[in-house]
Computed example of a mutant assay.
Amino acid sequence: MKTLFRRGHALADPAAQLRVLSGPPPRGVDDGADARPPGPAADFNAALAAAELPSLAAAALDTLQVNVGKLCNMTCAHCHVDAGPDRKAENMSAATADAVLELLKVSGAGTLDLTGGAPEMNPQFRRMVRTARDLGRHVIDRCNLTILTAKGYKDLPVFLAQQGVEIVASLPCYTAENCDAQRGDGAFMKSVKALRLLNGLGYGSDPALPLTLVYNPVGPSLPPPQGKLEADYKTRLAEDFGVQFTRLFTITNMPIARYLDHLLETGKYGTYMEKLTAAFNPAAVAGLMCRTTLSVNWDGALSDCDFNQMLSLPLANADAAGPRPRNVHDAPAAELLDRVLNRPIVTGPHCFGCTAGAGSGCTGAIVDAAGA
C-alpha cells in the first residue's frame, strides 16, 4: 500500500478530511436504496450539552506526546498519520527536539510519549529518550515492532531496555491473517520475532519493563471489552508463540487519513460515523486524553491530541492574554506552558471516536463495558 501523500490523493490534505468530517455523510453501499437522506455531521459539543456536560477544557499536563515524524518502515491500512517510507522530509529537527525537551523539563509532565511514523527512525529519538530519562520522566515508545528487526535498528531492543522505556506496540490481532490484512504480508511473524526478542530482555515479565500491546478492529466496528480481549491475547500468544506481555489497550479506529479513505472507498463512512455517535458514552468524557496531554508535531506545532494534530487543528487561538502560542518555537518554555494550561479544547465529529462505547485513547479503553 502507498501513502495518500505518495498517491497525490485529495485526502492527503487535512483540510479535505475536515470537509468530509464536517459535511453530511455520503450514502454508502451499506445503506441500501431506501435509506433516509444523509443528515448533517454530528455535533460533539451538542452531545456534551445534551449529556449536561461542560465543554472540554485542558487540566493538569501529565503527558507530552510528541510525533517526531511521519517516516515509517510500514504503511498500515488503518494509519491515521498516513505514515510510510516516502515521508522522509517530515522529521523533527534537532532544534525542535531541544525546544520539546525544554518544555518537558519546565512542565513537570511525568511522561514523554514518543510516536510517529516509526519514532525510532528519527535521528533525535535516542537523545530525547536519554534526556527524558535523565530528567526522571517515564518514556513511552509507540513501536510498530517490525522496526526492531530491521537493518540498522537491531540494537534498539537493548537500548530501550537499558533506558527502561515502556514499549506500546501495535498488534491488531493474535492471528497472522487479520494482522497482515492491516499491516502487510509477513508483518505478524516479524512482530512475533520482535516480541520474543523483547521477552528475552525482560519485557513483559520485569515490572520495570512494561510491554503493552494495542488492538484496533480490522473492520468498521467498536473494540470488544478490553479485559476479555486481553485474556484471549495472553492465552493465544503464550500457547502459540511463547510470547508474554504486560497489558492490552483497545483503541477505536479514527476516521482520519487512510482509514477515512478506506471507509469512503467501501461505502461504510456514513454507517461507521452513525455507529460512533450512537455509542457516545458520557462516562468516557472525564478520561479523555486531551484533558491531560499536549501534542507536539514534528515541526513543533501544538495540538490538543494526536488526532487533532493529524487534522492540522491547532490550539484554540486566544485567551484573555492575547494570541495563544501554537508552536514550541513561539515562546520560551515557561511562558508557553503558562498559556496552554486550562485552555479550551478544539473538538469535531472525529471526537466521537474517543467517546464511543468504553471510550478510547492512547491508554486504551477509558471505562469498562458497563460504562462505570
Rank of each mutant, 00 (worst) to 15 (best):
L148R: 12
G116E: 12
K154P: 01
K151D: 10
V168L: 12
N144H: 07
F280G: 09
A365W: 09
G287K: 03
L313C: 03
L114K: 07
K268N: 11
K193V: 03
S93Y: 03
Q65G: 02
A118G: 14
Q182E: 11
M273Y: 02
F352S: 10
I147H: 11
A47F: 09
L337S: 06
A278E: 03
P24G: 08
T293Q: 04
T266Q: 12
M121I: 14
D180S: 11
G361A: 07
T75Y: 02
H262F: 08
Q65A: 11
V218D: 13
F245E: 04
P225A: 05
G186P: 09
R87I: 01
P26T: 12
V106F: 01
M74V: 10
S295P: 07
Y269V: 04
C179E: 12
S22P: 00
A176I: 11
C354M: 13
A109Q: 08
W298I: 03
P224F: 13
V367T: 04
Q163A: 10
L104I: 05
F188H: 08
E52S: 15
A356V: 10
A89M: 09
G152Q: 09
L337K: 03
V346N: 13
Q226R: 13
V214L: 13
A60N: 10
V100L: 02
N327M: 00
T271F: 05
V81N: 05
G116N: 10
R183G: 10
T347E: 03
G84S: 12
I140F: 15
A50P: 00
G184N: 13
C354Q: 12
C79R: 08
R142F: 05
L53V: 08
L148E: 04
A132V: 06
V296L: 00
T363M: 12
G200V: 08
H262M: 13
L337N: 01
K105S: 09
G108K: 08
L229E: 08
A83I: 06
G28V: 12
E230K: 09
V139N: 08
P282W: 04
P207Y: 06
K151C: 01
A94I: 06
S303Y: 02
Y174F: 15
V218H: 14
D34V: 10
C72T: 09
D261W: 12
L288R: 03
N122I: 05
Y272G: 03
R137D: 02
V68R: 05
E239D: 14
L71Y: 12
I140T: 09
A16M: 08
I256L: 14
G84L: 04
T271R: 15
G8D: 14
S312E: 14
I345C: 11
P323I: 01
E52A: 14
K154L: 06
A331N: 07
F44N: 04
V66P: 04
C143S: 15
P85F: 07
P207M: 06
A132I: 09
A16H: 06
